[in-house]
Amino acid sequence: MRAEAVEEGALARPAEAPAAPARSPFAADLRELLANRTAVLSIAIVLAVAAMALFAPWIAPHDPYEANLLRRLQPPVWLEGGEWAHPLGCDQLGRDILSRIVFGARVSMTIGLLVVAIAAVIGTTLGLLAGYLRGFVDVLIGRIVDTLLGFPYLIFAIGLMAAMGPGLANIVLALVLKEWVLTCRVARAETLAAREMDYVEAARALGASPARIMLGEILPNILSPVLVVATFRMATIVILEASLSFLGLGVQPPVPSWGSMVADGRAFLLDAWWVATLPGVAIFVLVLAINLASQGLRDVFDPRLKA
């Protein structure tokens, strides 16, 4: 028997007051977000850095690898001896700092996005499983999570990088291996709350399988907090990548990374402060922008903060 068998509108009757025009809660949230100026500005900065990374070859005024010892430690344009050809000056090998910062954004953004995305997928999946299935699965995942949480983040990453050797893929792997834990905890906690809701019971009463309940019923309800946590975490990942590169365990020279640029410039801090400081400013601005942007997102998407 199918629903087609039923005569159209046979039982239609005047109903209660008509509901407001259908609009997704998302659209309302988006309008709220756009009203928050700090958040909009921060998101714009993050997007600008992303665009800078994406279109680096067209944006950068020079080849970031082109060394010219005649321009060694040339100051930025606003200091004596600077020139417009190299607005942010040059480093110890005479390479254009602006171009290297533009290209360095690639490393930061790629690693930040990749790590956060992969960790969010793994963490959400395991968190859902642990929170919904409980029992042995929960205990097992919980133990792994607790163990990993016991390690300081940077020590854990340094150890892994030292063992695996430097390289982009290895940085991502080292950071993901610990990063998923945080998403997992959030996803598990949210799942624990959601699985007790009546709509989960209702879905079960109508014959939904565990997989369908997890993906179809619970996932949409835990997605906002998970996404908010993930955006917050991206700031930390950017710093960690910079730290690893600073220590020489990250991306290898001559590929420009903000962290390794700071490390390189350290030796000349007294004579040529800009070599180390300017990439540092880039890290600072990006991390601050990510934090403020995710705070804006959280204010809008976390229902618990709404009065």
Binding site: A22, S24, M197, D198, Y199, E201, A202, A203, R204, A205, L206, G207, A208, G216, E217, P220, N221, L223
Partner: peptide
């Protein structure tokens, strides 16, 4: 059997619908 042969509507329709789905 659930849903197909025997269906149940739970006590509270206000919470038995998933708020995140249309």
């Amino acid at each position: 059997l659930r849903g197909r042969a025997i269906a149940i509507t739970l006590q509270d329709a206000l919470t038995a619908l998933n708020p995140a789905l249309t």
